[in-house]
Each structure stands twice: as C-alpha cells, then as structure tokens.
Design a protein around this nucleic acid. Structure first.
Lengths: 360, 360
DNA sequence: CTCGTTTAAACAAACGATTGCAGTCAACCT
DNA sequence: AGGTTGACTGCAATCGTTTGTTTAAACGAG
C-alpha cells in the first residue's frame, strides 16, 4: 500500500493540490472557502494522509528537527530534561534528535556540525563550558539555540537553569541550623557555570551566616563524578582542615565523599553531615539517605524547548536573551544531623585514638 | 553566507550538476573519469559543500535517520542502550531520533507513525509487548526494525536481548547453594517477553535443582515498578506461602519488595535473601547492596544498531530473522545470605511472636 | 449594464539533489 | 571504411510540498 500524498487527497476532494495544501495548513486555511476546507480535511482523514516532512522541509527550508546535545545520557541528570523537551517539541510537530558527546569537545563539535549540515532548525545544549568557543560561534552565526543547566560566561544565548544560589543557600541554612559552623564545599569543576555559581553562592551563604570563612573551605573537584569527589575528600582529610559538614557540588561528588569518609572510619551523619545536589534516583534509599537539592529537571527541559520554539519564529534579534531560573527544593534526609564537636582530618597532630578529634 | 549547493560545485568544476553528483557519490564515481572526479571533489572541498540531506532524502526516499523508541528514557535501563546504538549509527552516517512513549500504546503508535511520515529508514524498538499489534503491522509492512530487550510472541522481527534464562539460572543456583529451598519469583508483567521468559526459566531452574515446586511460587507483578513489587510482596506476606528468598523480575521490583519486607520487620539478608535483575546504578550502594544480574546494555544497543544497518541494505527478505542473546553475569552482593530457617508470611497459624516463623 | 473589486480556486515554479536516458566522440574491429 | 562498442557527460524528469501569480467567477456600485 503506497503512501498517500497530497495529490491523492486533492483528487479525492476534487480540488487542486495547491488548494488542498492551503486547506490543510491552519495559517492559510482562511484563504479557502470553509466548505472546501471541510471536504479536503475529510478526504485527508479518510485516506489517512500524513504529509511528507522531507518534501515540506525542502520547500520551506526548515527541517522541523531540533538537536539536543548532552554530555552523557547515562547520567541520570539528563533523561528527565530530554523527556520534558521531547514532549513539548513533539506536540509542536518537531522531532528531537539526541546526541551524546561523551564529554568530549571534539566529539561535540563534530555532532553539532553534522546536525547543522542536516538543516537542524535549532539546538538545545546541555554541554556548555564557562568559556565555550563552539557556543560563541553558534551565537555569532545566529543559530537558534538554548542552553540548559549550564551557562556560558558571555550570557549570549538564552539559558534555562535551576536556581542554584537559592539551593545552596537553603542547604547552608539547614546545616547552620543544625549547629554546624565549619562547612566545606566540594565544588564542581570551575569551568562550568554550575560549579562556579554554587561555589560563589556558598561563599556568600557562609558570610551571611557569619560562619568562619577561612581558606580551603571551597575545594573544586576535577569533574562531577564519584571518583573526583573521592579524591577531593582524601585531600581534604589529609589537610588539617576542620569540618563537621560537607556541601557537595552534586550527588556523585557526595557519594565519593561518603565512600572516603566511611573508609576513614567517619560516620555520617554522626561525625560528618553531607549534602548533595540534584537528587538523583535512589539517593533517597541509601543508608544514610542523602540530603540533597531537588531540581525541576523535567520542567527545565520543557521550558528550554518552549523558549527555543518561540525563538524560532521570532524576528532575528528580538530583545535581550532570556535567562530563566527555576525553583529548587531542599530535600532533608538522613545524611545531615546535629553538629558533633569539630571533626578534623586524619590522625595528625594532637594525635588521638582515631580520626575523630576536636573538642572534648 | 548562503549554503553552497551542488550547482555551485558543478559550476566551479565546469561540469553538469548531474556529473558532479555522480562524482561525489562513492558508488557512482566509477562512471565518471578520474580526472573529473578529482576536479569535482576538490571544488566541493574548497567551497565547503555539504549536501542537503532533505533534498537527497526526498529524491532517494531515504532519510538516513533511525528512530529509537523506548518506553521511558528516565528508566536507567535504557540510556546505555541508546548510547551504544547512537555510537554505531553515527559513524555509519545515520542520525538517531529518540522518542519516549511514556509506556503508552497510543502514544507509541503516534510516534512511530510520525517517524514513518518523516521517512525514517528503520526502527530500534525497546517497547515490545508479547502480543503487539503495532509490531505485527511493521513486520507486515516490511519496515526495517530490530527489537531490543523485549521480544514478541511471533518472533517475526530481529531481536537483541540478554540471556535472561542463564541469568535466572545463575541466580537460583546461587540461592540454592546458600541453602535456600523455598524461593519465590516476583515476576515481571506477563505481557512482556522478559517477564515470561524469566518466569519460565525460574520454573525450570526450580525443577533442575529439585526444589519444592508448589503453586504460588511465581507471582507476576502488574508492572516493572517499585510500587508493583511492593504490592506483590504484600500479597505474598498475606498469603501463607513460606519462603526464605525472593528472585525479583527486576531491580525496581526488588526495591519494592525490600521496602515491604523491612516494614514487616523482616531483615535482609538475615531473614530473607533478595535478588534483582538489571543492576541499575546505585543498587550496589544500598544497604544491603543488591545481588542482581548485570546486563550488557551498551552492547545490546550497539549490536541492535548493527543488525539494523545490515538489514537496511540487504535484499527484502534475507533468510530467517536473527535472534541474538548476549551474555549476563550475576553480581553477588549483600542482599543474599545463607538460608535461615523457613520464613513464612504474617503471624498466621502456628502463630508465633513475630513474622519470623519456621523450624528453629 | 459595465467596470472595478473581492473571493476562491487553479496553475506552475520553485526547493536541491539523484538517475534513466540520450547524446558525443574516439577507439576499435573486421 | 563503416559500423559497433564503450567511456563520459549532458539533459531533463522526478521526489512531494508550498506559495506567488494568474484566471474565473461572483458581487456591488455608479
């Protein structure tokens, strides 16, 4: 059974293909008599007509495809965003093309180029670095694109993210309320906006709670990964820094921290409280369950898609680029508890019987 | 800067567009003189020519796009498959279009229709039901498609899955070795091949280990979800069935079971051992860490993509449809331990002081 | 009654590539 | 020498839509 095309519908309705085309398109259906519209629409339904997107795209110089670029779809942070975006795009008649850059800049460029060659109408990018050449190029070229989750230094492209500052502030407030005074931030990579922003918000929160502000309280990790978090925690323990709580740049870093703390004989939350970021699936079922900041991932994906859609049929440069921040929530769980005495790194100086030092 | 098209290249090389087209296509470049080929290729490179995929697709009735359909990208089971498939497809010059059906048959049909309208060259489907009308239609229509993870009753389409039977068999062997004799299987939905296959493999394993085979040992859940697993476990406890171990249809079901067991005062693995399936991220960090069956998800995705590619340029019907099973591994962790005395449901009959009854 | 004016539908030209067919020209064979 | 072959390349149709431009009909006013 051959695919039914516009000519077939037109013939069935007894009109010219051109007329049928106008009748079917909501925009132009005003140009044809209501009676004819009805006839055409009915014929289309009866025959099960589905327009050929390639032909239409060729004629209209639009592909109705949106490219979405994520660093690693395997990271549970991204699927909800993808899902939110896909839902919005699909009801608007667009198709989502997903690509995974494997956290590699070269691969990212290749993917984006390939999509551009395909005539992709716009991009949803979750891979932004703080200084990102590729994104600058896209901005220069006027390619419709929206950033998700991570922003760039220039703020030249529309951006949808979470209100990280408020999340950090809530986390610090929570810890302060539990009596913690020496809080360490295991920050995310400083070449990402989230890493920088959360670190900056952390410093500000420390000040506003009038907590001791010494150096070494913010310790950037090499990556948003468990291993990077573990490594940073080892360095932290090896240093002489005293702390009773850790605010991690994200959940994976928190998991790495927990692993190392446990290995060092420190218990959570009895000895050290830990807060994560992102609320990945299952972190609520760990022992202890992880206190963390919940992000509206799905909504971020949906909103970014919507912003892209409006950008698509807006005039070339319509006002300033939008920067949207969605609200977050602190999920208080088992990994945070009231402050014990100050805890310090490894059995160094004032050596005691174990890693658990401080007052007393 | 306008996109350079084939005519531009042809003019620059001093040939007809048709000739340029042939010169550029590896298949037909034998039809044109080597000298001309060289000239055209150089011109194309110099001008930075990238063919318009839409135009080509329209003419050739191929889009170089592959549709991948998953029930829920948010389920950590799927991202690795997507990733494996994407990698293979992208190096073959194909683009992966991902859609999420939200576990809804109507939505699935809509998505597939839309993709077909777009001229999608083939499908990777992870949504198969045991009796699946849509897939039968696709098979009838001769649409190139490969099933992943789940199969259909008819076995009419190529399929790539995991060797579930061996996984189940290893799990049961492991439990039997720990001394368990009364093992219950909280099976997955029986309208999925995985649910049926694992249940069938379970029965066979019970027989081959000569374990007591009573009724009520296989208890299908309504879905592959934590809630469904919890509900099934409640019914199990309410029944008079004795058991010391549970083999869950997948990890989510296992999590539901653990929740209910804990709530009922039963401890894992002291009172009841639990085995999952799939090895989702983080289940190794739970307390107790979950013993489960690890699937080669990424490889499954890659292989299915490869099979689809070969199917794409094979003659219409080339031999029997391939059915590939990839090896699995049992990850033995903390949720399984040596058998205590028989455990039974709630304080019924022979009423004791708690839920923990049996021998002793 | 006629001449603008509106309204509705038909016509035909794109969009950018691929490809069957036909033509050119030189070489080759008998 | 004439016809045949074969290697290249040019020509033009085609894929299925959309859309600017006629054409045809209907309408209203002077």
């Amino acid at each position: 059974m051959e695919r039914v095309k516009l000519v077939d519908v037109a013939r069935a309705a007894g009109v010219h293909p051109g007329t049928a085309s106008r009748a079917l398109a909501p925009d132009s259906s005003g140009l044809v008599s209501p009676e004819t519209v009805r006839r055409v629409v009915r014929a289309a339904e009866r025959l099960g007509y589905v327009p050929n997107t390639l032909a239409r795209g060729l004629r209209m110089a639009r592909s109705f495809m949106i490219g979405m670029v994520v660093p690693d779809i395997t990271n549970p942070l991204f699927p909800p965003m993808v899902r939110g975006a896909e839902q919005v795009l699909s009801i608007a008649g667009y198709t989502l093309v997903l690509t995974d850059t494997d956290n590699d800049a070269a691969s990212e460029r290749r993917q984006v180029d390939q999509l551009r060659a395909r005539g992709t109408d716009g991009f949803l990018l979750a891979t932004a670095r703080w200084n990102d050449e590729l994104l600058d190029e896209l901005a220069d070229a006027g390619v419709p694109a929206v950033l998700i989750n991570r922003n760039t230094a220039g703020h030249r492209l529309p951006y949808v993210g979470a209100d990280d500052r408020t999340g950090v502030s809530a986390a610090v407030a929570h810890l302060a309320e539990l009596g913690h005074r020496r809080i360490v931030h295991l920050a995310g990579p400083q070449d990402t906006s989230t890493g920088r922003e959360r670190a900056s918000a952390f410093r500000q929160a420390i000040r506003s709670h009038e907590l001791p502000a010494g150096r070494g309280l913010v310790r950037p990790c090499a990556a948003y990964s468990e291993d990077a978090g573990a490594e940073a925690t080892e360095r932290l323990l090896a240093s002489a820094t005293e702390f009773t709580a850790i605010l991690a740049g994200n959940d994976l870093i928190a998991l790495g921290a927990l692993r190392v703390l446990t290995a060092a004989g420190l218990r959570c939350p009895d000895d050290v409280s830990v807060v994560g970021f992102n609320d990945l699936p299952l972190v609520d079922k760990l022992t202890p369950s992880l206190t963390t900041v919940t992000l509206p991932l799905r909504e971020m994906g949906a909103l970014s898609a919507q912003m892209l859609l409006t950008a698509l049929d807006a005039p070339r440069d319509a006002g300033p680029v939008a920067q949207a921040l969605l609200g977050v929530e602190l999920a208080v769980r088992g990994s945070t508890g009231t402050c014990p005495e100050a805890v310090r790194g490894y059995p160094h100086k004032r050596g005691g019987s174990g890693p658990y030092l401080g007052g007393e």
